[in-house]
């Protein structure tokens, strides 16, 4: 088991190093001068030279790469050229919005999607199943910005239960912060819940036909008891994969919803950094996303091993 953990963790670190190298190469070794790229064609040679000095561009690539890595380990991601603030500080501020938003959306999609999937599987071929699957199909098809606007219209504009947008910082009023995340996370969760319901249904229908469910029934369980005690856990295995992918997708994919609800999240930060050619910020934020996504994959893998003894043995 320890060997398994160590190996997975070594893989995680290697993956991060490889990604860091690719990100560094793409943004730093591309043809052209990064300083000129950042400042634009009309910048004076003096300004470009000053920025080159500030970015340390005169040192060899390997040395700069190592410096960049070392800096990140110490929490120093460099200075944003456009905002004149440390990149690390900018990212932490934005993650404080995006991460809770993502986690909330994940929780909602699981709480809604998984039970509905189980219900549909149990009522397979009956009206309830058909209705749920039509609903899930619609949920996948509806764009989440449109659903977000619909939610705003109903709950914020008409009923005035929740704010239309914007974000109250956590340290000012955490209940207010939560309130401002409710609608966006619902908008994000709808398609995810639909996908989860479909995957859960398919996985459980598959498991229900397996011999060990018949064995469980032969031992004296009703179908529902057998599904509950033996079916769901087995059916969760394929669902886990989807959950991992969804989380990674949500962290990086919140940008549209953040725009609809005027949330100062990571997606908007990256979007602005790209349009303003803030290479340092783009590089730092991309690296943070890579860490989040890779860590999610690691956690998914470990959860798999925890749930499924067959994977533990191979370690």
């Amino acid at each position: 088991m320890l060997a398994f953990l160590l190996r997975r963790f070594a893989g995680f670190v290697l993956m991060l190093l490889a990604s860091a190298a690719v990100i560094f190469l793409l943004l730093d070794l591309l043809p052209g001068d990064p300083a000129r790229f950042i400042l634009g064609i009309n910048a004076s040679p003096d300004a470009v030279a000053a920025l080159r000095l500030q970015m340390g561009l005169d040192a060899p690539a390997l040395e700069r790469f190592l410096q960049w890595l070392g800096g990140m380990l110490g929490g120093d991601f460099g200075m944003s050229v456009t905002q004149r603030l440390p990149v690390a500080q900018l990212i932490v501020e934005r993650l404080a919005v995006t991460l809770p938003l993502t986690i909330l959306a994940m929780l909602i999609s699981m709480i809604v999607g998984l039970p509905l999937g189980i219900l549909a599987a149990r009522r397979r071929g009956k009206p309830a199943d058909t209705a749920l699957m039509v609903l899930a199909q619609t949920g996948v098809a509806v764009p989440n910005f449109w659903f977000g606007m619909l939610l705003t219209l109903v709950f914020a504009v008409t009923l005035r239960w929740l704010p239309t947008g914007g974000f109250v910082p956590w340290h000012e009023d955490w209940i207010g912060s939560l309130r401002s995340l409710v609608l966006p996370s619902l908008a994000l969760a709808l398609p995810q819940a639909s996908i989860l319901a479909r995957v859960m249904r398919t996985a459980l229908v598959d498991v229900m036909g397996q011999d060990f469910i018949r064995t469980a029934r032969a031992k004296g369980m009703t179908m529902d008891e057998a599904i509950w005690r033996h079916g769901v856990r087995n059916a969760l295995l394929p669902v886990l994969t989807i959950l991992g992918l969804q989380f990674a997708y949500l962290v990086a994919g919140t940008i549209i919803v953040e725009n609809v609800f005027f949330l100062p999240g990571l997606g908007r930060l990256i979007f602005n950094a790209v349009t303003e050619r803030d290479l340092i910020l783009v590089r730092g934020a991309t690296m943070v996303l890579v860490v989040v996504v890779t860590a999610t994959m690691l956690i998914t893998d470990l959860t798999y091993a925890w749930v499924d003894p067959r994977l533990r043995v191979r370690a």
Binding site: D211, G220, R310
Partner: peptide, 26 residues
């Protein structure tokens, strides 16, 4: 269904063909 399930649980033992798939892998 429940009474039938309890009847087989108490009075009938079953062994199936394929022991790999007939046992819960987890």
């Amino acid at each position: 269904e429940r009474e039938m399930a309890r009847l087989r649980g108490k009075h009938i033992g079953m062994v199936f063909q394929e022991p790999m798939t007939a046992l819960n892998p987890l």
